[in-house]
C-alpha cells in the first residue's frame, strides 16, 4: 500500500483556491500546508465560510486548486485528467455526504454495491461484502428497501456502508451529522470511530458540532481559509 512519504496519506502544499462570486474574487482557501497520516480520525472544524468544504473538495479531487499541490497516497492530483481522477476516487476514497445522497431509485443493496460494480467486483463477492457491511452498520434486513423508506439516521448509515464497502484508504465526510439529531449524530460518529479503529481507514470529516469535535483525535481548525490551529489529542 503506497501511503506516500513518511506514512502521510494526504499532503498539501501552499493550497489556495479563489472563487469568482458574481465577478468578485473570493479567497476560500489560502496557502494551506497540511499533512494527514494514514489511519487518522481527524476533524476539520470552523465556522460557515471558513473553507472546510472547499478544502475537502480539493483534497479529494472534486475541485481543482487555483495554486498549490495535493498529494494523495503519493499521487499528485493536479497531474490527473477527469477520467483518472474518477478511477482514483473510486479506488481510494469513500464519501459521506451531509444530505446522505443515496440514489433513491436503487435499493440499499444496489446503492452500496454501486462502487464495487464500477470496480468490476464479481456478483457473489459484492453480495457477501454488502451483507457484511450492513451487519457492521446494524442494518441487516434492510437491503431490499429504497432510501425514501428509511429514516435520516438509517440513510446516513447506508451512506457510511457505501463509503466503506470498497475498503478505500480514505473516508471523507462533510458535516455527516448535520441533518441528524444530536443522539443519532453522536452514535454515528462513535460508529465511524469504531470502524476507524477496526479497519485502520483514515477518516477526515468536517463539522461545527462540538459533540462531534470532542470525538476526533485530531482537530484542524480553519478560519478564513487558513489553518488557525492543529491539535492532536489522545
Amino acid at each position: 500500500m503506497n501511503e506516500g512519504k513518511n506514512g502521510n496519506i494526504i499532503v498539501t502544499e501552499d493550497l489556495t483556491k479563489t472563487y469568482s462570486d458574481e465577478g468578485v474574487p473570493v479567497l476560500a482557501v489560502r496557502g494551506v500546508d497540511l499533512a494527514i497520516r494514514s489511519g487518522e480520525f481527524a476533524a476539520i472544524v470552523g465556522p460557515s465560510g471558513s473553507g472546510k468544504t472547499t478544502f475537502l473538495n480539493i483534497i479529494s479531487g472534486l475541485d481543482k486548486a487555483t495554486e498549490g499541490k495535493v498529494w494523495l497516497r503519493g499521487q499528485l492530483l493536479s497531474e490527473m485528467n477527469a477520467r483518472e481522477l474518477s478511477d482514483f476516487r473510486r479506488d481510494n476514497i469513500g464519501f459521506i455526504f451531509q444530505a446522505y445522497n443515496l440514489i433513491p431509485v436503487l435499493t440499499v443493496e444496489e446503492n452500496i454495491e454501486y462502487i464495487m460494480l464500477l470496480q468490476g467486483v464479481p456478483k457473489k463477492e459484492r453480495h457477501e461484502r454488502v451483507m457484511k457491511i450492513l451487519k457492521d452498520v446494524e442494518l441487516e434486513g434492510f437491503e431490499g428497501r429504497r432510501p425514501p423508506q428509511l429514516s435520516g439516521g438509517q440513510q446516513q448509515r447506508v451512506a457510511i456502508a457505501r463509503a466503506m464497502v470498497s475498503q478505500p484508504a480514505l473516508i471523507l465526510a462533510d458535516e455527516p451529522t448535520a441533518n441528524l439529531d444530536s443522539k443519532t449524530g453522536g452514535a454515528l460518529v462513535d460508529m465511524m470511530r469504531e470502524l476507524n479503529e477496526k479497519t485502520g481507514m483514515t477518516f477526515i470529516f468536517s463539522t461545527h458540532d462540538h459533540t462531534v469535535m470532542r470525538k476526533a483525535r485530531r482537530l484542524i481548525s480553519l478560519r478564513d481559509g487558513q489553518v488557525a490551529s492543529d491539535e492532536v489529542r489522545d
Binding site: 479529494s60 472534486l62 477527469a82 477520467r83 474518477s86 478511477d87 476516487r89 473510486r90 479506488d91 464519501f95 455526504f97 444530505a99 445522497n101 440514489i103 454501486y114 462502487i115 464500477l118 470496480q119 457505501r162
Partner: peptide, 16 residues
C-alpha cells in the same frame, strides 16, 4: 444535478 455530482464523486467516469 446533485445526484450526478455524487455519481461522479464516487468514481463514475464522465463517459459513464
Amino acid at each position: 444535478m446533485f445526484e450526478f455530482g455524487v455519481l461522479r464523486a464516487v468514481g463514475t467516469r464522465p463517459f459513464g
